Amino acid sequence: MAQRVLVLGATGAMGQYLVPSLAKKGYQIDTVSLDDPPWTFPNVTHIKADAKNQAFFLELMSRNYDAMVDFMTYPTAQIATYLPLALKSVGQYVFLSSCRVYADVEHPVKESSPRLIDASDDPWLLASDDYCIYKARAENALRASGFGNWTIVRPATTFSHMRFQLVTLEAYLTVRRAREGKPVVVPIEAKDKHATLSWGGDVADMISGLVFNPKALGEDFNVCSSEHHTWGEIADYYHDICNLKAVWVPKEDYYQILGAHEFNPGLRWQLEYARLFQRISDNSKVLEATGLKQESFRTLYDGLKHEIQKFPEQFNWPEWTKPAYERMDNYLKDRKH
């Protein structure tokens, strides 16, 4: 009988590539997300639902899957409910953390490198429920749980179908503005900082190689490429691929454009505690565990080109993207005068 795998958040940047990778290995897979899937496989059953609905989550856990890959996010208040249920109910629990947990102390960043939750001297970050903090809290809880059936995966910045990053900007301010012949504003302080960007398909193959892998139990892995470039070089890639022009501005101007303010510090922290760090990643541990080779991964340039060329010509951008887009237009207009 085929081993049974549950994938939560299955249509996201990594999930949409992970499911085909697992399906090709012959597992019986149930996938859950709020979106329709881009795949069709006879051994994959998709459930369109909210995976964090409590009654639904309990029902899923009653099925006793052999493995579960969890792409959901659990702020601190939810860690103590969802994670213990998963650990008790599945054979192997693959938890999505992030390379954003790391402090800017060691280069390259290894799995043993200091994390912000342990090394930061910012009392407000440590008192917050920022992404880098609650991911690290969940890691701590898994280690202290007494269970040994967990695997922690830490992707670096991951680009994928309709997901593109330039510093902290996403597709509605990168690809959209490129398509409309408009420049994009980026913070000058990031220009010479190194970043690790990985293609979602390669990240999915790394995670797939850790599912049912005895070397993965009770371990954490950087699931990313080891290729790295400065944000200035990455901006040049965007210009070459889709003619996106970058305008480098002071970070305080950048914050205003994106809508950062006292009651929304996460935008600042994403820049200050991630994109302005030197992010050079060591992926040797996951390569050793899975047998994958760095040279088989897509290069950053080829991966970006592959995904940008697939981006739909017509796309209805959500209403929430409008304010930052318009503030960027107004800033650039005022800058010309």
Rank of each mutant, 00 (worst) to 15 (best):
T299R: 03
Y27N: 08
W317N: 12
F56R: 07
T158H: 03
G26P: 11
I234Y: 01
Q28F: 13
Y17E: 13
N222H: 15
Y237H: 13
R268F: 02
L217H: 04
G209K: 02
Q256I: 11
D70K: 06
P38E: 04
A77M: 04
A195F: 05
F56A: 07
L58F: 12
W269G: 00
H306A: 10
L258E: 12
G303F: 00
A77R: 12
A190P: 11
L258G: 07
A216G: 09
S160K: 06
S145L: 00
A13V: 12
K88E: 14
M14D: 01
K336L: 14
V94S: 05
D121G: 05
I308K: 07
T151Y: 10
L287G: 00
W124Q: 15
H239R: 15
Y331I: 05
Q28K: 15
G266Y: 10
F311W: 09
G12L: 03
E180Y: 03
R268N: 02
P312Q: 05
F56S: 01
D118N: 14
P75W: 03
A178F: 03
P108F: 04
I29A: 07
L96G: 03
N149A: 11
G181I: 06
P108G: 00
V185L: 14
P187V: 01
P114A: 10
L300N: 08
Q165P: 03
H46Q: 01
R176S: 14
R176Y: 09
